[in-house]
Amino acid sequence: MSAMNEFSKGLWRENPVLVLLLGMCPTLAVTSSATNGLGMGVATMFVLMGSNIVISALRKIVPKKIRIPVYIVVIATFVTVVDLLMQAYAPTALYDALGIFIPLIVVNCIVLGRAEAFASKNGVGKSILDALGMGLGFTLALVALGGVREFLASGSLFEIKLIPGWTTDFMLMTSAPGAFIILGLFLAGMNSMNMRKAKAQGKSYKSASLDCSSCNICDMGGKD
């Protein structure tokens, strides 16, 4: 695969939220506004890049059987270090905006998922591109979801009221059920677009092969 491909697959074809359905917890919890989606997305992209670099650099010396605990230790350490460094040296405004998302990233399975599925098998350069693409795809999906929810909930976007008279919040949209509904509509829309595209080319649409048969999490065979 070309370098461009590694980057662009995260944006649409293997978008972490809309195709891989990874990181559902932050996706559903923080997309109550476009600003929150952006904050979470940027913070995740940053951590993802760091963890992908470290894990692809370590990939040859980590025994296969204990790779998952090792990845978790590496990711948790990296996140905590970033949190402390930001708290100490980043401009206050930046930390105020992103700091709240950083502890949530430790439990974000996009980071672990990319470590396992990509960084552990590819070189550092490719892993950086993968992290950038996946991070950007995650950010775009979160901003889109957050934007739709925020607009439907209170008529505002990026915390700026677009419809001045709108004072009562549409509570369904600000809470988790609204997140599920909008996410469901997004997924349906995305699938229908992909199907239409496939039909135009005279093929039937098949989703990316991401089921159990192509997953290697359970592949704990005797190579250590």
Binding site: V30, S32, N36, G39, E159, K161, P164, T174
Partner: peptide, 24 residues
């Protein structure tokens, strides 16, 4: 200082100026 869920808990904790498009 807080680590509440952005958008839910922080709606209670954060003081933010409400901007409208008119202000912009």
């Amino acid at each position: 200082a807080n680590t509440e869920t952005p958008g839910l808990g922080t709606a209670v904790t954060d003081r933010k100026v409400q901007k409208t498009i008119v202000d912009l």
